[in-house]
Amino acid sequence: MQLITGRVWKYGDDVNTDVIFPGKYTYTVTDPQEMAKIAFEDLDPNFAKQVQPGDVIVAGKNFGCGSSREQAAFCFKYARVGAVVARSFSRLYFRNCINAGLPALTLPQSPDLFQPGEQITIDLQMGRIFCAAGEYSFPPLPNAVLGIFQQGGLIPYTRKSLGLDGANQR
């Protein structure tokens, strides 16, 4: 697995799916490029305009609480966010990240370790985050779901498990 290097976008506790991807768009905005433009619309309108590939979202506890809408994970993937690092995740959001193949990393330390805009590096294989404040470990994904993540998400994983890899791909 690759190294992720990017700038930190820092947010607080209990960031919910409505501010990440507003409900009014859930049935009308489906194009990946358009979804990327909506990311964080109701929390930080600058995010979608300025985010660069590899950038990392850092937040406090219960990130992604609220709805089951997986667009709240996919919009970051389409914006080419490198990873989401949080003190904890809502269970639905965590699942949606695995299913989207977007790294969702649980770091028990306070997000105050990170400065907004600072460049950090994440080694997924080693389970390490390197930032100005030091070097920190995050727990690996459970083995039972690591395969889904490694295949790039649930749909490629399911195709492979059904022996449909390469056939009928859109």
């Binding site: 609220g66 709805s67 089951s68 809408r69 997986e70 994970a73 639905l92 699942r95 949606n96 299913n99 989207a100 998400g153 649930l154 749909i155 399911t158 498990s161 059904l162």
Partner: peptide, 27 residues
């Protein structure tokens, strides 16, 4: 996410994502 409602009847019920429902349709 509000699939948890059915627990009022003693069911174990929980929310999942869209891709997961697509996978259930298949598998």
């Amino acid at each position: 996410s509000h699939t948890t409602t059915y627990g009022a009847f003693g069911a174990f019920s929980t929310g999942i994502g869209r891709s997961e429902m697509a996978a259930i349709l298949a598998t």
